[in-house]
Design a protein around this nucleic acid. Structure first.
Lengths: 231, 231
DNA sequence: TGAATAGTGTCTATAAGACATTATCCA
DNA sequence: TGGATAATGTCTTATAGACACTATTCA
């Protein structure tokens, strides 16, 4: 029953983002030197879906990610599926792209000869259609930042309000108003104070910030909010 | 280089929606009697991606749709990709699902022995994970209805404001307020009056409605609007 | 005490929602 | 003229956005 002639290759590519020094960074991995196409080129991690190992698509993406980094993923979502005759010179190819957010602090022992973080703003040429994939990922993150808690998954478990606002600003590439941001975040019930430890952990001067954590351990949609311009 | 052992099947399934008598309807097609799984069962149209015929995924979806119906598609968007070891008893299977909207008036010559419209509300059991796919499609349509012109693609090229509001109500399954709806739609610049032909085309009594068309021929996002409850 | 950062209060413009009113057709 | 449908107007309340102010720390 199954067609014996050419059938598409099935792969998965993962856009992994993290926050380093208040800036979004993208994980690039070095392609296998034995690959018939683009060997040794740096790009986003990817690989074939393994029918024998993987239970489903998200597990395939998770496996690919694990293989390249020991990164604990705090957020993983299917992004889009790219497929055409021409996107890979080896033939008709399908890539189920995923978006992953990780906490930079939790990623340990990245082998710099295999995987590196680069500032997202500095990413230029990538092989295949990977620039398009990364662009789609950024668009998705920006969109969700306007109505959900998604950017918080780039922060540690507990964080301060200024830190939270900082991630939103980094993701949206736009300044936000302190007061408006607080009002919205509180009204939505997106975060809650962490009792006890109001102790400060950083900075030189200024009033110590209160610690918060997400009210919900998973993504929380809260209507269209948090978008505030400022000159 | 290419793995010679088991590779996932690559298919595409299309959720086709239309509006009949103010109600959302789903297109079901009868599966091939020669299929090794679920022969002769009615479900959403689907088929293998053909590496030899199709240029890319959206063209594969369009081809599958054309094969089952002569339907002119007014809106086509990739929905989600479902893939796992167990979703198809034939083995590891990937389905790139698409959402299509068509104008019922423009669909001609549907062979009732091959394809039929059924009210979406009455759809119960479907084979494979197709219930999940349809649910995802409905969720997508509802979500986009709250901030875009998407439901208008279920209407003819020109339409009246009450008709437009009707589609939104059908999609959202919720009554809307006349006045609020008009204000929002106009302010967004989503539609524009069709000059000349203010002539009425239907109904028995009452003031004739103005004809409009979409300002933009493609999907228009307008911020989060149009959601108004009413007792 | 003053610089620096965190957090709160307040005012205004705008938008949403509910509902009442007017407009225009047909029988 | 009255019923029916379309279109508009108005009022109230909620929210966004801007900005000023207070609070708490360190040097």
């Amino acid at each position: 029953m199954k067609k014996s002639y050419e059938t598409p290759h099935v792969t998965s590519d993962v856009v992994v983002l993290t926050l380093i020094d208040g800036q979004l960074h993208l994980l690039l991995a070095k392609r296998d030197s034995a690959s018939p196409v683009e060997p040794n080129v740096w790009t986003i991690p990817g690989g074939y879906v393994h029918a024998d190992e993987d239970e489903d698509l998200s597990q395939a993406a998770a496996r690919i990610l694990r293989a390249k980094t020991g990164a604990q993923v705090t957020y993983l979502e299917q992004l889009y599926t790219f497929g055409s005759r021409t996107r890979d010179s080896r033939g008709w190819s399908v890539s189920i792209a995923y978006l992953a957010l990780v906490r930079h602090q939790e990623v340990e022992g990245l082998d710099a000869s295999l995987a590196q973080w680069v500032p997202l703003a500095q990413v230029r040429a990538l092989p295949f259609d990977h620039v398009e994939i990364v662009a789609k990922a950024l668009a998705r993150v920006r969109d969700k930042a306007t109505y959900s808690s998604l950017p918080a998954f780039l922060l540690p478990d507990t964080f301060t309000l200024p830190e939270l606002m900082g991630v939103y600003e980094a993701v949206l590439n736009q300044r936000l108003d302190q007061s408006t941001f607080r009002h919205k975040v509180e009204k939505q019930g997106m975060i809650r104070k962490v009792r006890g430890d109001a102790k400060r952990l950083q900075k030189g001067a200024g009033r110590p910030a209160t610690l918060y954590r997400l009210s919900h351990p998973v993504l929380h949609n809260c209507g269209r909010v948090l978008l505030t311009g400022r000159s």
